[in-house]
Simulated scan of single mutants.
Amino acid sequence: MRIKPAGDQAVTIEFGDTIDEAVSARVIALERSLKDDPVAGIAETVPTYRSLLVFYDPAILNGRDLKAILGERAETAPATDDARARHFAVPVCYQGADALDLADVAAERNIDPEEVIALHTSATYRVYMIGFAPGFAYLGGLPSALHTPRLAEPRQKVPAGAVGIGGAQAAINSLAGPSGWRYIGRTPLRLFDPARADPAFFQAGDILRFFAVSPDEMTALERRAAAGDVIVEAQAPW
């Protein structure tokens, strides 16, 4: 564990150097501790794969005191997933224009497109962090048989909701924009909406699975989402 300054109003506490579920659990446990029992002067926390960035007001909280508090909390916060982890089933269309790179991923891995879909929907994924773009969800749990390098030349525009593969990582695109990830499907779920109380749909520590829907089901779900309907809700743990 390392605590380092990040400018004059933030510190970062690092728990490791790899993408690892146990490291992520410690990051999330510390963030939960700070939310459950707030410290005067802490303004915001940002979880990443291996660290927690903590912004604070130096007029209220001394940086040296903050480091001591974070060190103590990090040692005492329970680094395990519990019933508070949210679970989601996320619809994905793996057909037509939504399956930008499905055939290429199948060819790269020397399997059929149907097997790519079966593998992708069989796994349980963990949201490690939100970043790159507002609401963009970085996921762990991608089956090793689907680990595929990113594109040699990024696309200039990938639609919101595109479900991608980048090496050993999985992700869901939140906003339309450029990307070098391989996208094998798309979800109608809106990952970022500034009109919501919580603009980002997912948060670090969430658990999710994907399930396939047809193009007609995708269209119907998109219409519901555009109308403001809730199309994906937290479920009981699997």
Rank of each mutant, 00 (worst) to 15 (best):
G177L: 05
G205D: 12
Y138S: 01
V39L: 01
A162K: 04
P38K: 10
I165N: 01
S179D: 11
D112L: 13
T76D: 15
E233F: 02
A85Y: 08
I111V: 15
R155P: 02
R2H: 12
G16I: 02
I207H: 11
G167Q: 04
T124A: 11
N110P: 00
R50C: 09
G135D: 09
A170Q: 05
R155C: 06
I117R: 14
E222F: 13
G180E: 05
V163N: 07
F210S: 07
G135S: 09
Y138F: 13
A97R: 14
V54F: 01
T18S: 13
I172F: 13
I130R: 04
A85V: 15
Q9M: 14
I184E: 03
S144H: 12
D206F: 10
D65A: 15
E217G: 11
D65E: 13
Q169D: 01
F136L: 08
R73D: 02
I19G: 05
P47I: 13
W181L: 11
T124C: 13
A59C: 04
A176P: 14
T76N: 13
E108D: 05
R50T: 12
K35F: 14
D229I: 10
V27F: 07
Q169L: 12
A10L: 11
Q235I: 13
G185I: 08
D216P: 09
L142V: 03
D37W: 03
Y56H: 03
L119R: 12
L53I: 03
V116H: 07
G140F: 14
R73T: 07
R26S: 10
L139G: 01
A77F: 02
D36V: 00
A160Q: 03
R126W: 11
A197E: 15
G166M: 00
P159S: 13
T124F: 02
L52N: 10
D104T: 05
F15G: 04
V11P: 08
L70S: 00
P199H: 09
A162R: 08
R150Q: 03
A225G: 15
T187L: 06
V27I: 08
E233N: 14
S174K: 03
K67H: 10
P149T: 04
D17T: 12
A160P: 12
P199T: 13
T12S: 03
G177Y: 07
T48K: 07
I172Y: 12
V127I: 14
R86Y: 04
T48R: 08
V116C: 10
F210C: 05
V46Q: 01
A83S: 11
S33R: 11
E108G: 08
A234I: 00
F192L: 14
V158A: 12
A6S: 12
Q235H: 14
K4T: 13
L221M: 15
G135H: 10
L52F: 02
R109M: 09
A234C: 02
S24R: 09
D229G: 12
Y94W: 07
G131L: 12
Q95M: 04
D112A: 15
Q95V: 04
Q169S: 02
G16V: 05
H147M: 06
Y138H: 08
G167I: 10
G71V: 13
R223G: 14
G96H: 09
N173P: 00
P58I: 06
T187G: 05
E75C: 06
V23F: 14
L119G: 00
T219W: 14
A162L: 01
R223C: 09
L100C: 00
D101A: 00
P194H: 04
